[in-house]
Amino acid sequence: MLLIILLIFMIAGSIIALETKNLLSAVIAAGAVGAGVCICFLMLGAPDIAITQMAVETLSLVILIRATISRDLTHITAQREAGGLVAVGVFMAVFVLFSTFALMEIPPFGKPLMTVSSYYVQNGLAQTGASNIISAIILDYRGYDTLGEATILFVAVAGAIVLLRKKGRKKAEEKDE
């Protein structure tokens, strides 16, 4: 029951974040949605994810505010196009159709399938020695996933630094001249 109230709160927060005219309040409303997700994770029995979500939420809020607050243009002018609305209507119809099919197939809330993970839960402590089963999965059973994830993070950070640095572009322009 509390989960439903939290989800309605998050939906309201996301609508406010999308529809408000002030960019700063939009960013803060998105932060409220993230905090709601964090509380949901805590109630669903995932303290690992809740810690990560809280830290990541704070950092991304700081980054978004830092990136937008010093811009002089914080108010936006609303303008709509008919093409975008038509596209979103078509997409919503397809999405509702497929999500109806999906809701018939997935297991009901509170009764997970646990086909693979019952093996992990039963043998995790004996085989890896880690009492935190999530650590055992991400670093022992499924280490490839974590390696690929570290690569993606490395590429994203390197891409951000390359996009924003000043020195390399100037040198390249001087060479062209």
């Binding site: 690992d48 997970p112 999530i134």
Partner: peptide, 22 residues
């Protein structure tokens, strides 16, 4: 509870932060 989705989401959240930065 099922630990496998939690392990997948734990990496996905940090990837989301990296994508936001980019």
């Amino acid at each position: 509870v099922d630990p496998l989705p939690q392990a997948l989401v734990l990496t996905s959240i940090v990837i989301g932060l990296g994508i936001t930065i980019l």
